[in-house]
């Protein structure tokens, strides 16, 4: 993993505090200078994106209120340059294909070092 010295903003969207803590901790281990912000729902994520303009976003699917895939679609319509990794244990073909169609990267839960690396590699792809 190449170390990037420029500070990036990552928005973590997950209704589970545990998942947000795990993602935050594993990402900061790789990129200690990144700014991490959090949202607990799709609706909160939409507000946060407008306010904070993150570079990257991790998105859970199954949350109370708006589905993470719907939030992803809305975010990417408005801000197509944000890189979004959709994290879910629901590995159904529908969700994988849907994520790809939206231009997001599907990453399987549970959250592990390996799944975080997959998301980070997607974030760091050349445009």
């Amino acid at each position: 993993m190449t170390q990037d010295n420029s500070a990036k903003i990552l928005l973590i969207v997950d209704d589970s505090r545990l998942s947000r803590m795990m993602i935050r901790s594993m990402v900061l281990a790789q990129h200690p200078n990144w700014i991490i912000i959090e949202a607990a729902s799709g609706e909160e994520a939409l507000e946060s994106v407008d306010q904070n303009m993150p570079n990257f976003c991790t998105m859970d699917i199954n949350m109370p209120g708006m589905l993470g895939t719907d939030a992803t679609e809305q975010i990417l319509l408005k801000y197509p340059n944000i890189r979004i990794a959709i994290f879910s244990a629901n590995t159904q073909e529908y969700y994988r294909t849907h994520a790809a169609k939206l231009g997001a990267q599907f990453v399987s839960k549970p959250i592990t070092e390996k799944s975080i690396v997959k998301a980070l590699e997607f974030f760091e792809l050349e445009p």
């Binding site: 589970s16 505090r17 545990l18 998942s19 699917i61 199954n62 879910s88 244990a89 629901n90 590995t91 159904q92 073909e93 529908y94 839960k109 549970p110």
Partner: peptide, 25 residues
């Protein structure tokens, strides 16, 4: 605690999400 309850819910969420994927197949 709130965090333990959150962790328990997430654990179950991950489990049933995997179950839904198997059921879908």
């Amino acid at each position: 605690s709130e965090l333990q309850m959150d962790a328990l819910t997430e654990l179950f969420n991950v489990g049933v999400s995997r179950a839904a994927a198997s059921f879908s197949e």
